[in-house]
Design a protein around this nucleic acid. Sequence first.
DNA 1: TCAACAACTTAGAACGATTCTAAAATTGAG
DNA 2: CTCAATTTTAGAATCGTTCTAAGTTGTTGA
Lengths: 147, 147
Amino acid sequence: MMSSVTQDRPYSQTLTRLREAGLRPTRQRLALGRLLFDGGDRHVTAEALHEEAQAAGVSVSLATVYNTLHQFTEAQLLREVVVDSARTYFDTNVSDHHHFFLENSGSLMDIDGDKIAVTGLPQAPEGTDVARVDVIVRLHGAPRQAS
Amino acid sequence: MMSSVTQDRPYSQTLTRLREAGLRPTRQRLALGRLLFDGGDRHVTAEALHEEAQAAGVSVSLATVYNTLHQFTEAQLLREVVVDSARTYFDTNVSDHHHFFLENSGSLMDIDGDKIAVTGLPQAPEGTDVARVDVIVRLHGAPRQAS
DNA sequence: TCAACAACTTAGAACGATTCTAAAATTGAG
DNA sequence: CTCAATTTTAGAATCGTTCTAAGTTGTTGA
């Protein structure tokens, strides 16, 4: 089933994705969608994506970038990652996975969901459901090198 | 060794702790320290602690609450918990442990560090050290109850 | 004891990320 | 093409947090 649906082209079929999410394929959404989904998994902040769009010659306001990121998140095309109270990251990898977070540079790296196992979790308190389990491995750059 | 040093009284020896941390025991720091350390583990935000202090008749500015929380954190009397990009939580439990986070109410609950095991972690990228591994179990209130 | 200086507190301004507003522009349907 | 609904946008507003500069307090040592 669904043989190579997402593999057919190196491109993201952003148009289709937007349609399926019930979002009008506007110039801005298409451009941002392509920046986000063409080529590998990405972790972006609103500011960063905005700058990237500008640099690519796409004129989008910062407000629209925020709107779009949130709409994409609701549509499950993105996932929010909370690792730093100063900024919000959006992750194009929406599968079950975790993160390395390099505190020096503020960069994120995915850790495959089925590489890690979390065992011994107490059951969730009465009346609550587990929505998600996040594992964040915080890293510090180790400037010193054993020469 | 250190038999019951931290158990002798239900009180926090805040004065001693401040001295050891090289922080002058000012009226404000003592009051905040007592609110934080007398009685069980706590998770507070700056705003919340500020209100609590006011309610307790302690006059402290919000700026001082922020300063104090950061100084306590540097002194290892507190630990920052990042779970919500909108606010910063400070945890009086500085031992190795993890958290349940109730997204509805914004409340945190500790999960003992030795109850949980995280296995299969890939090794940290070249040139980096693991500073900490955080496990956050995000919960949603389940209003519906099987009657 | 108390002077003197460093450490500390504070009000309010400043800040940076994010959200809101309301008005203008675009989109899709017919 | 027209029109209504949706989307975009500039700029104002908000919110948590940090900064600033001035006043206060704690400590030290004569």
